[in-house]
Amino acid sequence: MTADVAREAAGALARHALELPALAGARTVAAYVSVGNEPGTLPLLDALLTRGARVLLPVLLPDNDLDWGAYAGEGSLARVRHGGKMALFEPSGERLGPDAVLGADVVLLPGLAVDGRGMRLGRGGGSYDRVLARLAGAGAHPALVVLLYDTEVVAHLPAEAHDRPVQAAVTPSGVRRFTDA
Rank of each mutant, 00 (worst) to 15 (best):
P142F: 03
V153M: 04
S92I: 01
H141F: 07
V114W: 02
D99Q: 10
V107K: 01
L148D: 14
L157N: 03
H141E: 15
V175L: 15
L96S: 06
V146D: 06
P158M: 07
V153I: 13
A113K: 03
V146Y: 00
A155D: 15
R123Q: 13
V131Q: 02
R123M: 06
V107A: 02
R120A: 12
Y149N: 08
L135M: 01
R130F: 11
M119R: 10
M119K: 10
V175P: 00
V114H: 02
G124A: 11
D150H: 01
G126C: 05
L112V: 11
A159P: 06
G174P: 12
R177H: 13
V146G: 11
D115F: 03
L108V: 09
V153W: 03
R164Y: 05
P98W: 04
D115T: 07
V153N: 07
G97L: 02
R123A: 11
M119Q: 09
E94A: 08
A169G: 07
L148K: 06
V145S: 03
L112M: 08
T171Y: 05
R164Q: 15
A168F: 01
V170T: 09
G118L: 13
L135T: 07
L148N: 03
G97T: 00
A104L: 06
R130L: 14
G139A: 09
G137W: 09
R130K: 15
A104C: 04
D163Q: 11
G116T: 13
A143F: 13
H162K: 13
A138W: 12
A159W: 08
G124T: 00
D115W: 07
P142A: 03
P165S: 15
V166I: 07
D105V: 01
V145I: 14
S173K: 04
D163N: 12
A140Y: 09
A133L: 10
L135K: 13
P158D: 05
G103A: 14
V106R: 02
G126A: 13
V146N: 00
P98T: 12
A136S: 14
G122D: 09
E94Y: 01
V101G: 00
A161Q: 09
H156Q: 13
Q167W: 01
A138C: 13
A133H: 08
A169E: 00
G118H: 10
L109T: 03
G118P: 08
A140S: 14
V170C: 04
R123V: 01
G139H: 10
A133E: 14
M119F: 15
R120M: 05
D163T: 12
P142W: 04
L148V: 03
A113E: 01
H162M: 13
T171Q: 12
V170P: 08
V153L: 11
A155Y: 10
G116I: 06
L148T: 06
G122V: 05
A113N: 03
T171S: 15
V166C: 10
D129F: 05
G122Y: 04
